[in-house]
């Protein structure tokens, strides 16, 4: 059994600590949605706007405030890629890995990001500058390969330009 455990290692969740006075700000959101468990997603969205991400304390407090089991809150948070448990970088890179973009070289862009920025999909760089997400078709296949940085769209990208484009975002 021991061996099996050792072979299969799960990545450990990093947990940030939110100070209690910060956490108190959640009360406003809880008041807004109290007694309406079907409004969990809007409540999580508001909380993420407030904190930038949804760490354990925030999820637990929302769960008990809205009277929703914390395992279910966590289930929802981890299901939607929109929600994040770890703080995001200042700029979110959304790289399309849909068929059209993939064929046209987005895999190469990904490789460059992994090498240059040092982050993989779902991760945030240590300096807090970038977070990387992979998406499946942005509906802009005509512009393939496509990457969104924050609100900006970069289409028809040549993988070689990746580093230069990223330099524009500090």
């Amino acid at each position: 059994m021991k061996e099996r455990d050792d072979i299969l290692k799960r990545k450990v969740q990093k947990v940030e600590v939110v100070p209690p006075e910060e956490l108190a700000k959640l009360d406003e959101i809880i008041d807004r949605y109290e007694g309406r468990p079907s409004y969990l997603i809007p409540a999580l969205k508001d909380a993420q706007e407030m904190f930038g991400y949804l760490p354990m304390e925030v999820q637990r407090k929302l769960a008990s405030g809205l009277n929703i089991p914390s395992s279910h809150v966590y289930g929802v948070v981890t299901f939607y890629s929109f929600f994040t448990i770890e703080p995001r970088g200042r700029h979110t890179l959304r790289l399309c890995l849909g068929t059209a973009c993939y064929v046209k070289g987005s895999k190469d862009i990904l490789d460059i990001i992994v090498k240059e920025v040092g982050i993989n999909v779902g991760e945030t760089s240590e300096d807090g500058r970038f977070s990387l997400e992979a998406v499946r078709c942005l509906g802009a296949c005509g512009l393939a390969p496509v990457m969104l940085i924050g609100e900006d769209t970069h289409g028809n990208m040549d993988p070689k330009d990746t580093t230069k484009i990223l330099e524009g975002y500090q």
């Binding site: 799960r10 969740q13 947990v15 354990m56 999820q59 637990r60 769960a63 089991p69 914390s70 395992s71 279910h72 809150v73 966590y74 289930g75 981890t78 299901f79 890629s81």
Partner: peptide, 26 residues
């Protein structure tokens, strides 16, 4: 756990190949 025990301790978390039954934050 939900319907009979009323404990709501477990949930499906993550998606796709990563999807598993777990508690919050494992």
């Amino acid at each position: 756990c939900d319907e009979i025990q009323g404990e709501n301790e477990l949930s499906f978390v993550e998606r796709g190949m990563e999807c598993e039954v777990s508690t919050d934050f494992g």
